[in-house]
Write a protein that binds this DNA or RNA. Structure first.
Lengths: 147, 147
DNA sequence: GTGAATGCAAAAGCTTTGCAACCTA
DNA sequence: TAGGTTGCAAAGCTTTTGCATTCAC
C-alpha cells in the first residue's frame, strides 16, 4: 500500500501552495529542499507521478518542455502563452464536447476531453507587439500549403 | 530565404505519406534515410521545426514523450490513447469555444483553442479491459482529495 | 559566389532506474 | 518485521547546438 512519508506530504504541500504557478519538477525540488533538505530529485519525480496517479495532481505538458503540475483540480481551463510558455488559469463553463463524439466513435472509449487555449499573456503582448512566432505556433488557417 | 533542399522535400513527403500515423522524429529519420541515406538526425529535427513554422506540419505533444507530427491540416481533432499513447483522428465539428472566453479575458490575447480527447483505442480496450492507469491519467471526477 | 543548410558529434535538458539503506505501517 | 520508499548516481531518451563543409539560389 501507499505510505504517507514526509517527502510526499512536503511535495504535495509545495505544489498546493504554488497556486496559479504550475511548477515543474525542478522548481518543486528546489522548494521542497527548504523543508526536506536531503530529498532527492528522483524522489520528487517518483512522488509527482504517484500524486498524479492517486488523483491529487494534474500534469500539464508543453511541446518539448518539462512537465508542469497543479493541485487545483476544480476543472478550470488553461491558456498557454506561446511566447513565455507560462500557463494562465481560465474559469469558464464548457459545453458538452464528448457525447456526440462518443456516439460517433463508439469503438474509441472516449473518457474525457482536454481543452487548452493558446495566445499571448499580458506581459508578452506588451513586450512583443510583433507577435514573434515560437515552435509552438500552429497555423491559424488550416489550409494545406503546397511545396 | 528558405531553400528547397532534397532533405526538406523528403521529410515533408515522408510525413505526408504517413497518413494517420503521426510519426515522431526518430521514425521520420529512419524513413527518410531510405531516400536520403546520409541525412542526419539533427537535420531531421531542424527540418521538422522549419516545416512547422512554415505551416506545413502540425506538432502534437504528449506528456513526457517525443513530439509527433502530422501533415494533414484540415482541422480534424485527435484522441490520445492513454495506454499505447497513439493518436487517432476524429472528424467532428466543434462549437465556438473562443468568443466568450476572449470577451471574458480581453487581456489574454487568445488566438486559438486546442481540443484533445483521451481514452482507450479499440486494441487497448480489448487487451486491457481492466483499464490500467497510466501516467497520463487524470481523475475523472475533479474533486480535490485530502491527505 | 554567398549565405543558407547539412552532416557529424558532442552536449544539454528532462526523466527514469538500479540498488543498498532506511522507515512507515 | 516486511516491504514500500528513499538517496544517490548512473543511464536513457529526446532534442539542441557548434562548426567545418556543402549546396541551392
Amino acid at each position: 500500500m501507499k505510505r504517507l512519508t514526509k517527502q510526499r506530504k512536503a511535495v504535495l504541500e509545495v505544489v498546493r501552495q504554488a497556486k496559479g504557478y504550475h511548477p515543474d519538477a525542478a522548481w518543486v525540488y528546489a522548494e521542497v529542499r527548504k523543508r526536506v533538505p536531503r530529498i532527492s530529485l528522483g524522489t520528487v519525480y517518483r512522488t509527482l507521478e504517484v500524486l498524479v496517479e492517486e488523483g491529487y495532481l494534474l500534469p500539464l505538458s508543453r511541446p518539448g518542455e518539462a512537465l508542469r503540475y497543479e493541485a487545483n483540480l476544480d476543472g478550470h481551463l488553461h491558456m498557454l502563452c506561446r511566447h513565455c510558455h507560462e500557463y494562465f488559469d481560465i474559469v469558464h463553463p464548457l459545453p458538452d464536447l464528448v457525447s456526440e463524439v462518443r456516439a460517433k466513435y463508439p469503438e474509441l472509449s472516449i473518457e474525457r476531453v482536454q481543452v487548452e487555449y493558446q495566445g499571448l499573456c499580458p506581459r508578452c503582448r506588451e513586450k512583443h507587439p510583433g507577435n514573434p512566432p515560437s515552435r509552438n505556433t500552429e497555423p491559424s488557417v488550416s489550409q494545406t500549403p503546397h511545396i
